[in-house]
Computed example of a mutant assay.
Amino acid sequence: MTTLTHRGRRAEGRGSEKKGEGEEEAADRELNEDEPDDSKDIRLTLMEEVLLLGLKDKEGYTSFWNDCISSGLRGGILIELALRGRIRLEPLALRKKRLLERKVLLKSDAPTGDVLLDETLRHIKATETAETVQTWIELLTGETWNPFKLQYQLRNVRERLAKALVEKGILTTEKQNFLLFDMTTHPVCNASEKQRLLKRLQESVLERSVNEPQRMERRTLALLVLAHASDVLENVFASLADDKYDVAMNRTKDLLDMDPEVEAAKGRGTEMIWAVLAAFNKS
């Protein structure tokens, strides 16, 4: 992973500040008019899709060796809230800040209908001082030395997501014995839903150019970033033939190696996606 370079520079005068705010507002309008993400038509949240990608179909649990998926799911929550118009990064002002220096601001505390998203919204609203994307991922994961901020940890996230997928008819619930203990597992019972998800991601890099990510559908771009952050990206392309697998992995690597600062500046409501990628690049 490469550490992001500092590209901050000073703008001149109040006119620059107004211009920056105008660009932010225009991006918001474009986001809302182009792709109304806050819609009941959304079948799965980004977090549910990431968990589905990480689950072993028959066994019904994620790899015991995967220690990245917990933080990846928290990053997915932030992106999902941004796509639904509930949060945003603070606008660029006189001094342009890097993505990881910009605070997460509440735009709307209107309930989303999703338990994890709404719980996170309450946390963001309750904070006295705004925090950055990287700090929020750490707080929601519980990786903080400050005992007063442990209240922001989201608990049992994987189990709650699995329960939601069971309610949507994609997973089922079983009990498995692991010698010393019993564990609740959630095997895939609707394979077609997962196959549609895999096909969408595979086609996004095999049949379309990834050299211009701003032209990519935002939820697909976000899911590729989150699959990488959650260490489940290989699962996405595992079913491909060797030649296509190599092409898909190389193209995705090219996408993930792009400079988040540069790509976020191109607009179309992707700032939070690139900020999450920048946070995982740094960690």
Rank of each mutant, 00 (worst) to 15 (best):
S71V: 13
K199A: 12
E167R: 14
L4E: 11
L139R: 01
K199T: 13
G15S: 13
G72L: 03
G169S: 09
L81Q: 04
E159C: 05
R43A: 09
E33R: 10
E80P: 07
K149G: 09
E271A: 10
D34R: 08
K244M: 02
H228G: 08
Q176Y: 14
A130Q: 11
M249C: 11
E35C: 09
F64A: 13
S70Q: 09
E90G: 12
E159P: 05
F178D: 09
G15M: 07
V225G: 15
E131Q: 13
L4Q: 14
G85H: 11
E30R: 08
E119A: 13
L89M: 08
L94H: 11
A229T: 01
T120C: 03
Y245Q: 15
N211W: 08
E143N: 15
V205F: 05
W145V: 11
A279H: 03
I42W: 00
L81K: 00
L53P: 07
M1V: 06
L31R: 10
E90P: 11
L81G: 01
E101P: 01
L94S: 12
E261S: 06
M258R: 15
N156Y: 15
W145F: 13
T141M: 04
Q202C: 10
N177I: 04
T184Q: 11
L31M: 11
E80L: 00
K253D: 10
E207H: 12
Q153N: 06
T112C: 06
L180Y: 10
W65H: 14
L51C: 09
D57A: 15
P111L: 04
E119R: 12
